[in-house]
Every structure is written in C-alpha cells, then in structure tokens.
Amino acid sequence: MAEVAEKEIKKSEGLFSKKNRKLLTDPLDANNPVTVQVLGICSSLAVTVQLKPAIVMALGLTFVTAFSNLLISMIRDTIPSRIRIIVQLAIVSVFVIVLDQLLKAYVYDVWKQLSVFVGLIITNCIVMGRLEAYAMANKPWPSFLDGIGNGLGYGVILVAVAFIRELFGSGSLFGFKVLPSWYIGNGLMMLPAGACIIVGIIIWIQRSWNGYAEED
C-alpha cells in the first residue's frame, strides 16, 4: 500500500506543470470555445455592442465556469449519471444567482449595466459544455484551470468583436468618441447580424492561420 501511495506522489505534477498550463492556453487559440467549438455564439452576439459589458460578461463567465467546474469535479463521483445534467444546471444556477445578488449589493453600477446578461450566463453552452466534457472526468485543480482557460478564450473573442463593433458602429471605445465627428456609425455593426459576420471572419482568419481544414 505504501508503495502505491509513493508512486502516486511521484506521478502528481506541479500546480502549473506544462500540462496544466496547456489547459489555460489551449482554449485561447487552438481550442477556442467560440471559434473552434462554436459554443456561446448566442451571447457573443448579444453583449458585444460595446466593450465594457463585453469585458464584464467575460469576467462573470470565467468566474462561473471556473467555480462550477471546481465544485462539480469535487463531487463528480457522487453525482448519479442519470440526473447529472440537472445537477450541473442547478449548481450553475446557484453560482449565477449569487453572483448577480453580490453585484447588485456591492457594485451596483456594474450590475445595472449588465442587467439581464448575468442571468444569461446560465444558458451559456460553454459552462455546461465544460462541466460535461471536462469536470465530470477530471480532478478539481485541472478542472478549475480548464474553466478559467475557457472563460478567457470566450472573453478574447468577445472583446475582439466588441472592439470592432463599438469602433465602427458608434465611433467610440469604452463610450468615448475616438473617430472624428463626421463619421456616421455603421448601423449593421449595431445589430446582432453584424456580430455574426465578424465572428465568421474571425473564424476564417484563425483557421487559415492555424491551417485547419474540415475533414471530408
């Protein structure tokens, strides 16, 4: 018995081993939840009209994904597989509602800006996707990192799309006018359809960059 325990200690890796670092960096590019896994498209169309809500949404989603991944991974052996989706959903909902309440009590202005978007985190496919695909089968710490990585990967795309939309849609960044006053905002950028086109272009650029091709 003692030998087995010793072997396990030898095998266990550092907190930021190469494998764990990959969990953080992979979703930023090669395995991006939005552009590669094509999850969370809905909210990346809805909250990217301006930069500020996009950033706060990205942070909120990172928080929820990371901690629900952690918790689910901790109790993964006790969850009956027949009701696992409902258990996951319940835990995500609790996190989101508590987050919403905390924001309302302590950073009221941010809460007001986000309004319905915080609630929308519950419906974000990335959260459920990571729980189902990763946290249910992995240890808590890697699951936590996986949650942070995927939240940030989502955030990178969100901020990129919001940057383009706010700049060309209303000629401003973070609410400050940056383009000269003769610039007339592009109405298409204000609409979700504009975001859909931008996300498509980002996917295109990324795929030709990484040399990705659909299998026949």
């Binding site: 009956p80 258990v87 609790v94 508590v98 309440q101």
Partner: peptide, 17 residues
C-alpha cells in the same frame, strides 16, 4: 441526492437573498 441538492441550493439562495 436530488432532495439534498434542492435543499442546499435553496438554503444558499435564501440566505444570500
């Protein structure tokens, strides 16, 4: 399991609210 989960979430939500 379901009952325990429901009660725990309910208590957490009620307390935070």
């Amino acid at each position: 399991y379901t009952i325990a989960l429901t009660v725990t979430s309910g208590v957490i939500l009620a307390l935070s609210s």
